[in-house]
Every structure is written in structure tokens, then in C-alpha cells.
Amino acid sequence: MKVDLFDFDLPPERIALRPARPRDAARMLVLEGDRMVDAGVADLPRHLRSGDCLVFNDTRVIPAQLHGRRGDATVGATLHKRAGARSWHAFVKGAKRLRTADRIDFGADVAAVVDDKADDGSVLLRFEGDAPVELLLERAGQMPLPPYIAARRGTDAADADDYQTMFAGPGGAVAAPTAGLHFTPALLAALADAGIGHETLTLHVGAGTFLPVKADDTDDHRMHAEWGRIDAAAADRMNAVRAGGGRLIAVGTTSLRLLESAVGDHGRIQSFEGDTAIFITPGYRFRAIDGLLTNFHLPRSTLFMLVSALMGRDRMQAAYAHAIASGYRFYSYGDASLLLPAA
């Protein structure tokens, strides 16, 4: 499909630079079948049914944004996927000027050597020393805010908490599973009181989620792989939800993509551990999920293509036009949409 079919005009003032406070005070646009309703995230319990189950991504964002020097040249690096105990793939500003074996000093006694360069423009960095890389990143790294926020303000202390979900566990993501940012203990308790359960899985979100689709046709776009895990017990519980008539609602496109990567031929979710590079566009047949809670996405992005696959492109274009006209806030710190396709 032509990528320009997924374009739309978004005024810059619709991009949220800070999250709603409290988190569950964000607005929520509900699309259920042919209905479209303006609501709030705190209203979620009454827009779902007893027996439904929300599926959250419990990945933790690491301080993966690094600034350093190679000789007299400044270097900006964003880690995007672990390659080994001391090695990470990274997108590097000015990567063409780097050579294999170049040493980059990131300050705070943190340095890395360029081990390899890939065709996609990324480089493989090997961190020096014996200290765990996680500790090195805590010393020298910053939270990797999305470029559409970072271009308009600097990272500050508030982002260390704001850009982490309440479910954050295993570290490894370089971007937040942002739909999960809307949840609070109070909202989770209200959902439980309404008979709505939850499960977690892990997908370490990579910086590739922010990359624009440069191809003219979706067939020519290459997704970056991300590592994920669903344990067997969680898969069994989620299958039991659907067998009992409940719905699985993915919280975020990251949860949805991992679930759809783990589903078998007969619609049963299986345990999963490994990489996924699934690319969902209109025409895709969803087998693992019955709905999606997600934020509002970029024009021409793989994520807008995904929601268009779930609800229909014309429907999502109309919904986004309504959201823009109605003052909804977009992107990582923005408002939410609850997408429930007709059965």
C-alpha cells in the first residue's frame, strides 16, 4: 500500500510535551463498532466488560541516550537493541564518520568501541570495563525522550518517573510502552472491582519505533526487530479468558504486536521468547486480541498503519480528524484511544 494513504495534517500544538496529572486524567476517545464517544481514561471500567483482560507491557525504559566525543567530534548515540552482555546496537548521529575500532568517550568513566556498522545506519557498540552496562548507563545516560518532544524541550528529572509505567520491571526498552503510562493503582483497583483482569508480557521497545517510514510503499519498509517474552502460565491464563467469553485488550501497540507474534494457527497464544519484527498493515487478520488501548500516533507511521488495520483506514482518519479538532493531545505523553472493532 502507498504510505501517503496514512498521512494527515497535525498542528504542532497538538503534541503533548508533558503527561496529564494524575495519569488517569487523560482523555480517551472510544471507538466501538460504529460508535465514537469522547471519554476519559478514568472511565475505562465502564467501557469494558466483566471478564475482559487488559494486557500490559512491563518493560522498563533504560537511560539509553548518550552524548560523547570521538577525538574532537561530538557523538550522540541512542541504544536500541542489546546484542550481548556488553554490546548494544545504536543509532548514532554522524555514524558515517565513524570507523570500526573508533573509541567514544561518554564521560563519567564510560566509553565504548565501535565493533561494527550495519547497512541500516546503526552501529554496534561494545562498552569497556567490567561494570554492568546498566550501571554505566545510569552514570552517563539520559532518558530517551521521543525526538518530537526532545526537539522542543530538554530532558529533566520529572521524565525519569513520567516516562516509566507503573508496571515497569525488566530493563531493556529505549522507548516507553506509552499506553501504559495512563494507569494508576486507583484505576487498576477500579478495573478489578468491575471484574476486569490484567496480565503482563515483556517487549523491549526499540528506538526504531520512532523512525519514519521512508519508503513510498509499505512493501518496501523494513521493521527493526525487538526482543519479547510471554511465559507459558500467562499464555494459558489469557487463552482461558477468551475461552470463557472474555476479551483480550492489548494496552499499547507493543503488547499487541507481541501477542500477534505468539499466536498459533488455531488462535491460541503460545509462550514466546525471542525477536519479533511483525509489521501490521490493513488486510492483516488479527487472531490474538479483541481490542486495543493506545495513544494517538504519528502520520505515515507504522503505528497508524496498525490501528488502521484494526479499525479501517477511513475510520481512523475520521477519528483522528475529530481528535485534532476536539483538542486531544497526541503522541507519547498525550491522550488515549480505546479501539474495539465490531465482532
Rank of each mutant, 00 (worst) to 15 (best):
G197K: 04
G197T: 09
G197H: 03
H198E: 07
H198G: 07
E199C: 12
E199Q: 12
E199L: 07
E199P: 08
E199R: 12
E199F: 05
T200P: 09
T200Q: 14
L201D: 09
L201I: 13
L203T: 10
H204R: 09
V205T: 12
V205E: 08
G206R: 11
G206D: 12
G206V: 09
A207T: 14
A207P: 13
A207C: 14
A207R: 15
G208S: 12
G208A: 11
T209Q: 12
F210K: 12
F210H: 13
F210R: 14
L211R: 15
L211N: 15
V213D: 13
V213R: 15
V213H: 15
K214S: 15
D216W: 12
D216C: 13
D216N: 15
D217R: 14
D217L: 14
T218M: 12
D220W: 14
D220T: 14
H221W: 12
M223Y: 11
M223E: 15
H224K: 11
E226A: 08
W227S: 05
W227C: 05
G228H: 02
G228V: 06
G228F: 04
G228A: 02
G228R: 05
R229F: 02
D231L: 02
D231A: 03
D231F: 00
D231R: 01
A232N: 00
A232W: 01
A233I: 05
A234M: 08
A234R: 10
A235M: 00
A235W: 01
D236A: 08
D236T: 04
D236Q: 05
D236K: 06
D236M: 00
M238P: 01
M238G: 05
M238E: 05
A240R: 04
V241R: 01
V241F: 03
R242C: 05
R242P: 05
A243N: 00
G244W: 01
G244C: 01
G245V: 03
G246Q: 04
G246S: 01
R247E: 03
L248E: 02
L248S: 03
I249D: 04
V251L: 04
V251R: 02
V251F: 05
V251T: 05
G252N: 08
G252S: 09
G252K: 07
T253Q: 09
T253D: 09
T254C: 11
T254N: 11
L256C: 12
L256W: 07
R257P: 08
R257M: 09
R257H: 13
L258Y: 07
L259R: 06
L259V: 07
E260W: 07
E260V: 06
E260L: 10
E260C: 08
